[in-house]
């Protein structure tokens, strides 16, 4: 290496077997003087990269939490819809019509007998509609009159669970 052009200094041990590390610049350009710090641009870029990473992680965690919350609400909505439908089926055909338009406001759902739903259901409301309809049996072509009982459980934005069941009018 002796006499060779020197790029950087870590390789320039020409005159000594033991490099004098105390006086060696660590800059490849062979800069003289004290080791320089980061420039403002470098610091800003580093901060920006860090900020992007932090924001990305926070956003994904937040999205995961939101999805989990939504899924939980849908499950609770299904319980509330299943429950109301199960309760409605205990009524006679002609009593079902009286339930048309029944609504439980968000946060104040009750069973048909007035048992208040616990706080887990606070974000949910519920409505019942009973509409006349008729269905035609595919095989015989017989027309059966009855009602569609529809239970919808919703939050402040949209329906989360909607169940509909057809109840045939009893034969006279």
């Amino acid at each position: 290496m002796a006499g060779a052009a020197c790029v950087g200094v870590a390789w320039c041990y020409a005159d000594s077997d033991v490099p004098d590390m105390g006086t060696v610049s660590i800059h490849p350009g062979g800069a003289r003087g004290l080791a320089r710090g980061f420039t403002l641009a470098e610091a800003l870029i580093a901060s920006a990269v860090l900020a992007v990473i932090v924001v990305a992680v926070a956003a994904s965690v937040s999205t995961a939490q939101k999805v989990a919350w939504e899924s939980r609400k849908r499950m609770l909505a299904t319980f509330a819809a299943d429950g109301m439908l199960s309760e409605l089926m205990t009524l006679g055909y002609y009593d079902l019509r009286d339930r048309d338009g029944q609504t439980d406001a968000i946060g104040s759902m009750e069973t048909m007998d007035g048992v208040v739903y616990p706080k887990a259901f606070w974000a949910l409301g519920r409505s019942v509609s009973v509409t006349d309809t008729s269905v035609t049996e595919p095989g015989s072509g017989t027309v059966v009159d009855g009602v569609d009982v529809r239970v919808a459980v919703y939050d402040e934005h949209k329906d989360l669970s909607v169940l509909t069941v057809f109840v045939a009018e009893p034969a006279e």
Binding site: L76, F79, A80, D82, G83, M84, S86, E87, L88, M89, T90, T111, M112, V115, Y117, P118, K119, A120, F121
Partner: peptide, 8 residues
């Protein structure tokens, strides 16, 4: 967590 299940 308390959950209420209505059955008929």
């Amino acid at each position: 967590e308390e959950v209420l299940l209505a059955v008929g």
